[in-house]
């Protein structure tokens, strides 16, 4: 595929309660495989997807959080977390299981505006 576009995936939902977070991750991996310019945004409850220490044995749902750490191997390095969303949930960058860039809402708003395709989950 020759045409490269800017794809942004906006993750706004918490993991496990619904399947959106997991299936969003599946799209992200495929999009990267197609050599597109991929950015991942985590805001609102989506920031919970990146919380360290997820233990899902007791709910019998697969813990897919290690996949976020594997994203680097797929050349997905643009992970952005909105500062206000993090703060509103009592979380800091140290609570997250991957390295991210924390952005203010103005910075994120600007970045969002520059995308070709925005997929929200």
């Amino acid at each position: 595929m020759s045409d490269v576009k800017k794809f942004m995936f906006v993750n706004r939902k918490a993991p496990y309660g619904t399947i959106y977070a997991l299936e969003a991750l599946e799209v992200v991996l495929i999009t990267a495989a197609f050599d597109q310019d991929v950015s991942l945004v985590f805001m609102d409850d989506g920031v919970y997807q990146l919380k360290k220490g997820q233990q899902t044995k007791g709910i019998e749902i697969k813990n897919f959080s290690p996949t976020y750490r594997a994203l680097e191997g797929y050349d997905i390095e643009k992970l952005y977390v909105e500062q206000e969303s993090l703060e509103a949930r009592g979380l800091t960058e140290d609570d997250l299981l991957v390295d991210v860039t924390v952005m203010t809402r103005a910075e994120m708003s600007e970045l969002m505006d520059q995308q070709d395709v925005v997929l929200s989950f």
Partner: peptide
Amino acid sequence: NGALDSCLRMAKAGS
């Protein structure tokens, strides 16, 4: 639901 709030918070002026 907070979707509208999130949208209004994030939408750039002129959107």
